[in-house]
Amino acid sequence: MAYLGRGWNAIAYSIGGVGILIGQLWLSGAPSTAAFGYLLIFAWHLIGLLHGYRTAKRMPAETMFPWYSRWYSLFLIFLVAPLALAMLLRSLLFQPFTIPASSMLPNLRSGDYMFAQKYVYGYSRYSFPYGLGPRHRIFGHGPERGDVVMFRQPTDPRIDFVKRVVGLPGDRIQMKSGILYLNGTAVEREPAGDLTYQSVTVHAFKETLPSGRSYMIVEQVDNSRGDNTREFTVPDGHYFVLGDNRDNSLDSRFDMGFVPDDNIYAKAAIVLFNSEDKSRQTSWIQ
Rank of each mutant, 00 (worst) to 15 (best):
V148N: 04
E188D: 13
Y181S: 14
G142P: 13
V165R: 03
V120C: 04
Y119L: 09
Y130E: 10
R164Q: 07
M175D: 12
G167Y: 02
D194Y: 01
E144Y: 09
L180M: 07
T155P: 03
G170E: 07
F139S: 06
D160Y: 00
L180T: 13
Y126E: 05
D171F: 09
G133S: 00
Y121E: 01
T185W: 02
V165A: 04
V187M: 00
R189L: 11
I179K: 06
E144C: 05
H136I: 06
L180S: 08
M150L: 15
R164H: 08
D160A: 06
G167H: 05
S127A: 06
R158V: 09
V148Y: 01
R145M: 09
R137F: 10
G131H: 08
R189E: 15
R158Y: 02
G170R: 08
A192W: 07
F139W: 12
F161L: 00
R135H: 11
V148F: 02
L195A: 13
Y121Q: 02
P143H: 01
R189T: 14
A186R: 10
S177C: 10
S124R: 05
G193W: 10
T155K: 08
L180N: 12
Q174A: 14
Y197V: 13
G193Y: 12
T185L: 01
F128R: 05
Y130Q: 14
T196A: 15
Y181E: 07
L195W: 04
R145I: 02
R172P: 13
D147K: 00
R164S: 14
R125K: 14
Y126K: 07
R145H: 09
E188K: 15
D194H: 08
V162T: 08
S177M: 11
L180Q: 09
R125D: 08
G178F: 04
G178R: 02
D156F: 02
V165P: 02
L168W: 05
A186I: 01
Y123I: 00
I173N: 07
G133H: 07
V148R: 00
N183K: 13
